[in-house]
Computed example of a mutant assay.
Amino acid sequence: MIRLYLFAEGQTEQTFASNLMTPHLANYGVYLNKPVLISHGRKKGEIHRGGGQNYAAMKQDILRFLKQEKSRDVYFTTMLDLYALPPEFPGFMAAQTYRNTPYDQVAFLEKSFAEDIGDDRFLPHLQLYEYEAYLFCEPNHFLSIEPGGTKGVETLQTIAGQYESPELINDAPQTAPSKRIIAEFPKYKKAKSVWGPLVAQHIGLPVIRQQCPHFNKWLSSLELLGQV
């Protein structure tokens, strides 16, 4: 069986991967280890984890795992947000030429990331534009957590209807997916690590894959690892 390490930006992605991706990938002969929160720094010898704002710390963390796990049947991937990547991220400035074609932009950044790490077992994934985009696939499932949120659901459905894919909901500071959700469901801000995975679980991987082509491409590539 292929083993896979996943570096998650936060607890929301970590729980999503554990609850939805782990059992799914097992069907393809891919064992997903407990997702690891990516490092954002080190203080007094202790690694601090969570967040994707310090590329040097992220790179060092990934390289450490690659060095520890040298087997050819071990692979590594990421769940990091394209939204608010640090300027020192590989290819960040060059990728700005693709701002109007988000799928090209994220592909360019993932390629630059992979080249900078320099190990063909590393298969990076950046989320367009952040995890919360997946929750716009079927916003009605927010009602399973907040039954009185019908108006908020309708607003989120209207927003989703304006885009070809939830992945294309933009990355402006006040209109990124998470900001739009918080505007309608303020409790989400402090409970995102619980609400986010629960809503996604109600939506289900098939629906997310159907509506989010970049996510689907990534998950498909992980499934294929089991055939290596």
Rank of each mutant, 00 (worst) to 15 (best):
G148R: 10
L143R: 14
L123H: 07
K189T: 02
D81P: 06
Q127M: 10
I169D: 05
A176Y: 12
T175H: 13
Y163A: 00
S165D: 03
F65W: 10
L156C: 09
G41A: 08
N170I: 02
L135P: 03
K192T: 09
N216W: 00
K70L: 10
Q162T: 11
P177V: 06
L80H: 08
L224D: 12
I117W: 01
S221Y: 05
I181G: 11
F76I: 03
L37S: 00
F185V: 00
T78N: 03
Q96L: 11
M58K: 03
Q201W: 05
K111S: 12
L85Y: 08
E132N: 05
T78E: 10
P147E: 03
N100V: 03
Y129P: 12
W218C: 11
K67V: 06
L25Y: 11
E13L: 04
Q14N: 11
V153Q: 10
F92L: 02
Q210S: 12
G50C: 02
W218N: 04
F7L: 03
T77W: 00
V153C: 13
K217I: 01
N140C: 07
G41N: 10
F113G: 05
T158L: 11
E69I: 02
K59Q: 14
Q53A: 14
S220F: 13
G52C: 12
P87V: 01
Y5N: 13
M1F: 06
V228C: 12
P124H: 06
N100W: 00
R64W: 13
R72V: 07
Q60M: 06
C212D: 07
R209T: 02
D119L: 11
